[in-house]
């Protein structure tokens, strides 16, 4: 079955995908449904930062959340700034994801879990697609926390977006929907479940954005947390149903995650130590 999305049109069609999404998937990403670009994301972050400071930045934990929020706002303000290259892509993804969750949690849930999964990925990645400048190695950073294929798709979407294509979001969503996203999603949620990688950032951004605190620990718990916010109990039931295709594909993807991926990387510490020494030598 062929789907064609006309300018400004809402398409509800039967979609044939490579084993991932099937059924009535909605590709309309306009107006109220448009994913947040960097400017909109920045406005949302500024607003929640103001609200957060008014009520919660009194204690130590609140100040830590505030620090992470500020660094994310700085990244969203200018993702290409050389001095802030560290974790730029992770911060953009988390900001996009939390922005989406905060916006949709009071809205009517999408009818299909597949729609929720697609929206989660599109909204999380859209800030990366729309960023004018990104660090030089952004594709590698994105591939590490998702997959090589997704990073390549985002690169294509960026080209499309920069050429002024008004339907870039729909095109991007259709490109995603044709492929199995579960491997990339499991890697991403595994990253967000680890407090030493994206977990702490996700917790801070979720709390600042007025979302329930995510249950970090495994990719599965973070995934269920996100699906629960968007789709409510009904969607969670589908995701946890052992007979459902979503559950099966998710479990298959999670099973391929590397063992010990959450282990502390001692060589990272060593590398940072040497970098610090070199920097000291360079400035001294």
């Amino acid at each position: 079955m062929h789907n064609h999305v006309a300018e400004g049109a809402t398409v509800m069609g039967h979609v044939v995908q490579a084993g991932t999404f099937s059924g009535q998937v909605h590709f309309h990403y306009r107006d109220q449904n448009a994913p947040l670009d960097l400017l909109s994301l920045r406005r949302w972050l500024d607003r929640v930062a103001e609200d957060f400071r008014a009520v919660a930045e009194q204690d130590r934990t609140g100040r830590e959340h505030g620090k992470r929020l500020d660094s994310t706002r700085a990244v969203v303000a200018d993702p290409g700034q050389e001095s802030r290259q560290r974790d730029v892509i992770r911060r953009l993804l988390v900001a996009g994801l939390c922005g989406y969750l905060a916006r949709t949690r009071d809205a009517a849930p999408p009818p299909l879990p597949e729609q929720i999964l697609l929206d989660l990925v599109v909204f999380a990645l859209w800030p990366v697609v729309t960023a004018r400048r990104l660090p030089r190695d952004w594709q590698g950073e994105l591939a590490e926390i998702t997959s090589a294929r997704l990073a390549s798709l985002v690169a294509q979407a960026r080209t499309s977006w920069r050429s002024g294509d008004g339907t870039a979001a729909e095109t991007f969503a259709r490109a995603l929907a044709r492929r199995s996203l579960f491997p990339a999603m499991s890697v991403l949620f595994d990253d967000l479940a680890d407090p030493r990688r994206g977990g702490a950032l996700l917790t801070s951004m979720a709390l600042v954005g007025g979302l329930p605190e995510p249950r970090t620990g495994t990719a599965r718990t973070v995934f269920v947390w996100a699906v629960g916010i968007v789709g409510g109990a009904a969607a969670v039931t589908v995701v946890l149903d052992r007979e459902s295709q979503v559950h099966r594909l998710l479990e298959e993807a999670i099973a391929t995650l590397p063992d010990g991926s959450a282990d502390l990387d001692l060589t990272e510490l060593l590398a940072e130590f040497i970098d610090a020494l070199l920097e000291q030598g360079g400035t001294g």
Partner: peptide, 21 residues
């Protein structure tokens, strides 16, 4: 030691940075 980053996939840029060290 720079090559022992565990089983997590790492980007070519990351590996290149380790080789540079």
């Amino acid at each position: 030691a720079f090559w022992m980053w565990g089983e997590r996939p790492r980007s070519a840029a990351f590996v290149a940075a380790r080789v540079r060290r």
